[in-house]
């Protein structure tokens, strides 16, 4: 059975991830029991990855046993759900360079979860956290040059055939209308760097002006 559950609650779709640390919360999410196991509710309004999944990102991208490099871990809200998804045989390398938010990430996520390795480091310098080749690079660092940063990380740490999930912030309103067109530039950068962009998911109504690019590294 998958570590991700999709549910329909009062006509609204909801996501649950199987809690790697039963009995423990990371923030103020709900803990619920499904078929004898504990799950944590995953709010798409608080997490862009959850939003992307509800908007069509397939379940087989972040899978049990997978290794994920998470850039921009922040306080670890999303990273903790990724940790649930990859489970005890998986790995999450979390990178965050702002100490104030990294504190919560280390305390509440990395210390508690044996599949998480934290780094307080700048994502521009992957040599600081090169501990494993990964299946997925997840990048949400809200920097103007984040596509370049993501690509540097991929070339050093992403396995061939691996996946890049890149959160892109739209800069104007018509992005919302036609994301494919506006994200062309970022898409072109990825294609040029040897990636195939599988889909561009616009994240409304969960996030305004955001999209997620799903790209796969060519062999």
């Amino acid at each position: 059975m998958s570590r991700l559950l999709r549910e329909e609650k009062n006509g609204r779709r909801a996501l649950l991830t199987k809690n790697l640390t039963p009995g423990k919360r990371v923030y103020n999410e709900d803990l619920v029991i499904r078929e004898g196991a504990e799950y944590r509710t995953w709010d798409p309004f608080r997490s862009k990855l959850a939003a992307a999944i509800l908007k069509g990102l397939p379940d087989d991208v972040v899978v049990e046993g997978g290794k994920v490099l998470y850039l921009g871990a922040s306080t670890g809200t999303t990273a903790s759900h990724v940790s649930d998804l990859v489970g005890p045989t998986g790995l999450v390398v979390g990178v965050e360079f702002a100490p104030r938010v990294a504190r919560e990430f280390v305390e509440h996520v990395a210390r508690e979860r044996m599949n998480v390795i934290p780094f307080v480091a700048d994502a521009r310098d992957p040599s600081k956290y090169a501990v494993a080749k990964v299946d997925v690079v997840y990048c949400d660092i809200a920097q103007p040059d984040q596509t370049e940063i993501a690509l540097v990380n991929c070339s050093m740490l992403l396995k061939k055939g691996g996946t890049l999930l890149l959160v892109v912030k739209a800069r104007s309103i018509d992005v919302v209308k036609d994301p494919a067109k506006v994200f062309e530039e970022e898409r072109a950068k990825l294609e040029k760097a040897g990636f195939r962009v599988v889909r561009a998911l616009e994240l409304s109504p969960f996030e305004k002006d955001h999209a997620m690019l799903h790209a796969v590294r060519r062999d």
């Binding site: 990294a102 990395a110 210390r111 044996m114 390795i117 780094f119 956290y129």
Partner: peptide, 8 residues
Amino acid sequence: RQKSIEAA
């Protein structure tokens, strides 16, 4: 992992 946590 423990080493990384301490460094962080």
